[in-house]
Design a binder for these strands. Sequence first.
DNA 1: GGGTGTCATACCGCGAGGGTATCGCCCGTG
DNA 2: CACGGGCGATACCCTCGCGGTATGACACCC
Lengths: 288, 288
Amino acid sequence: MTPGDDTVETRELTYFVAVAEELHFGRAARRLGIAQPPLSRAIQQLERRLGVRLLERDHRTVELTEAGETLLREGQAALAAVSAAVRRTRRAGRGAPSLVLAAKPGGDADLLPEILAAYAATPGAVPVDIVFSALERGAMVRDGRADAALLHAPREDLTGLAVEELLVESQVAVLPRGHRLAGRAELSMADLDGEPLPRWPGAVPEGSLRIAESGQLMHLVALGRAVAVVPRSIQGNLRHDLVGVPVADAPPTTLVLAWPQDARSRALAAFVRTAAEVARRAAHANRP
Amino acid sequence: MTPGDDTVETRELTYFVAVAEELHFGRAARRLGIAQPPLSRAIQQLERRLGVRLLERDHRTVELTEAGETLLREGQAALAAVSAAVRRTRRAGRGAPSLVLAAKPGGDADLLPEILAAYAATPGAVPVDIVFSALERGAMVRDGRADAALLHAPREDLTGLAVEELLVESQVAVLPRGHRLAGRAELSMADLDGEPLPRWPGAVPEGSLRIAESGQLMHLVALGRAVAVVPRSIQGNLRHDLVGVPVADAPPTTLVLAWPQDARSRALAAFVRTAAEVARRAAHANRP
DNA sequence: GGGTGTCATACCGCGAGGGTATCGCCCGTG
DNA sequence: CACGGGCGATACCCTCGCGGTATGACACCC
C-alpha cells in the first residue's frame, strides 16, 4: 500500500472546507469561483489520497462522515494558520512596525483610551491601529488579521490564544424604557423567561434574530423584539430609549486581552503589559 | 495594485521552509527531491506574490530578512497544522479509535503504569498506544502524530498545548560514582560550575555534546564527559556506576500531560481526567 | 413519464511546475 | 592574475494536472 503523502495543498483544503460547509457541490463550486466537475474530482482525489471517505453522498444529499467532521475542523484551523503566516509575513516585510488591535464598538469598558495613551507614552511604542469588529475578533487574531483583541470570556472562545484578564464585570439586561421590568432595581434570569434573548451570535433563536452588530441589537431591543444581557459597562453608551437593569444571577463576564500564543513581538509584549497595568489601576480606583 | 491572493500552497511553504532552514538553494533542493532551478523560481514567485523580500542572497550567502524569519516561524506552524489535519482525519476515518501517548523513556516518574491501568478500567476506554521519543514530543502533539504527551516544564515548550500538571519534582545531579561531588548529600548549582552541563537539547555546549537519547547522556556522564541535572524520579533507573545528588537550588521541574487545545475527543478527556486523578492520589500517598 | 436538480464521468486545452543546459558572478588558489 | 569551482539565476522545453464544457446516471416531483 502506498503510504500516501503526508500533506495536502491548501487549495484542496479550501475546496473541501467549502463543500463541507455548504454540503452542496454546486453552491460550493460557485462560492469558490470554479465549475462543479473539477470540484467533485478534487474531493474524490483528496479522499483517495487520504484513504478515507469524507462525505456520504447519495444523489440527493451530502453529509459529513466522522473523518469529514475532523477534516472540516482541523482544515479550518490549518487554513487560518496559513493565512496568518501570509499576513504576518507581509506586515513584517512592510517595514514600519505597528500593532493591530481588534475591538468591539462599546466593548472596551472605556479602558481603551487610557490603555492607548499609556502605551503611546511607553518608550519604543509603535503606532496602534484599532479595527472594529463585533464578531470574529478571535478569528482575526488567530489568522493574523489582528495582533491582539479585546474579547469577552466566556462568551467568546479563547482556545489557541494567550490572554490577560483585564476586568470582571457583572451583567445587565437592556430593556426598552417602557418595559414591564424596566423599573426594577434588579432582576434574575428567571424574570427574563419568555423574553426573546438573542444572546449574540450563538444559537440563533426561532425568529432568526441574526445579530451582526450591536447597533442592530439595540434597535431590536428598542422595538421590543429582543432583550439583551450584556456587561455592565455598556450602560454608559445606551440609547436614550433604553435602560440597563442589573441581573443578579447572570454569570460575570471577563474582559480579556488576547493574542497569539506564539507571538514574539516586543511591541506586543509591551502593549500587553501596559494594558494589564492600566486595568489594575482602574480596578483599584473604582473600589479601593 | 493586485491585492495578491491571501493564501499560499503548502508546497510553496514547504519549499520556503527548506531553503530558510538550509540557507542554501542546492541543499534545500536535494532535500526536497527536486532540481535547484525550479526551487529558485518558486521562491521568487512566492516573494512576488507576497510582495515581500524573504531572502537576501548575494551570490555567496543566503540569509533571512525580517519577513523571512516570520515566514519561517509561521510557515512551520502552518505546515504542522496541515499535517495534523491530515493525520487526525486519517485516524478518524480508520474506525477503531485509540489514543497515542508520547512519552520519554524513564521520563514518566513511574506514573505511567498506574495511569494506564486506571484508564483501562474506565468504562468506554479505548486502546492506548505508547510511542517513545526523547525529543520532539511537543511537536508530535502539535502535528497530530500523538494525541497527548508527557512533557517536562519548563524544559519543554508548552505553547499551543493544553496541559494538566501531574507532578512537581526537585532535581538531582547525575554523577559518576567516583566524582569529587558524588559523596555529598546536597549540591548547589554553583558547585557544578566548570562541569560540562549538556542540559538536554538546548544550546549545544562547546564540545558539540548533541544528546538525542537519555542512554547516550548517561553514557557520557559515566565517562566523565558530562554532568546531567534531571528530575529526581530518574534516580530509580540509574546505571549502577552513577549516583544522583540533590541540587538544592535547581528550579523544580513539573511533569505535565499535554494535548492539543482544541481536542474534542471524549476518550482523550477521560484519559486526562484519569491521569490527573492518579497523579493526585500518588502525591497524597507520598507525603500525606 | 417527462422535467428538474444533483453529483459523476468523458474529453479537451492550457498553463504551471519540473527538468536540463547554461550563464554570471564571486571567491578562492596556485 | 588567470583559472576553476561553487552557487544562484536564466533560458528553454516538456509533461501533467487543473479547470472548462458537455453529457451521463440517478432520484425525486408533479
